[in-house]
């Protein structure tokens, strides 16, 4: 097999992804090969969630409430991606994310699915296209219960409970974000 036709190696090199040694899988008659192409912890949503933990405020008594205890996750979302080579020039991309959870937010588990294909415009070049889609993995911030004494108890955005915004209005500012759901990747590689 020509080096350039090894789609797994091509993907790894071009995308600068972590490539673990391929582990062969002979699940099907065509001898499809599955490679671990990426494993990492954290994501833009993890970073965003961690950012929510900055700051704090005083309660009526003067005792300090730090947001960090609400937005600290003991486990950071881990993503593992694989490539299953179907033909010399096509493959399935798939993977999953574990998600993460803290007291006041959660990032759900995610599943990634997609494909990779490549063509060779000439013997020295490769044009690769991959499309992946992610299901799940959304960041959801949870509300707090705030006791304002005689003024009542409200479900509030934990971070805005001590501000001027009406308690019920603060709920509009709860973070709800989705990960990048569709990823299109186009790469041209010229060897000389």
């Amino acid at each position: 097999m020509r080096e350039r036709s090894n789609i797994g190696a091509g993907l790894c090199a071009a995308a600068l992804l972590l490539c673990a040694p391929s582990f062969a899988s002979t699940a099907l008659a065509q001898e499809w090969t599955t490679s671990l192409v990426d494993i990492h912890q954290g994501s833009p949503l993890s970073d965003k969630a961690r950012g929510l933990g900055n700051g704090g405020y005083e309660l009526q008594s003067g005792s300090w409430v730090s947001f960090s205890r609400w937005y600290h996750a003991s486990w950071v979302d881990m993503h593992v991606d694989f490539l299953t080579q179907i033909t010399p020039d096509t493959g399935l991309l798939w993977g999953f994310g574990t998600g993460e959870q803290a007291e006041k937010y959660s990032i759900g588990p995610s599943l990634k699915l997609g494909f990779l294909t490549q063509i060779h415009p000439n013997p020295n070049s490769t044009l690769s296209l991959s499309v992946t889609s992610t299901i799940g993995g959304g960041l959801t911030e949870k509300p707090c219960e705030a006791d304002y004494g005689d003024l009542g108890t409200y479900s509030v955005n934990c971070r805005l409970a001590a501000g001027m915004t009406a308690p019920e209005e603060t709920l509009k500012y709860l973070v709800s974000a989705k990960p990048e759901t569709m990823h299109l990747w186009l790469n041209y590689r010229l060897t000389f």
């Binding site: 009526q60 003067g62 409430v65 219960e145 705030a146 006791d147 509030v156 001590a162 001027m164």
Partner: peptide, 11 residues
Amino acid sequence: LSRALAPVAIH
């Protein structure tokens, strides 16, 4: 003002 706006307790 800040304490008047703040909760007594939050969880």
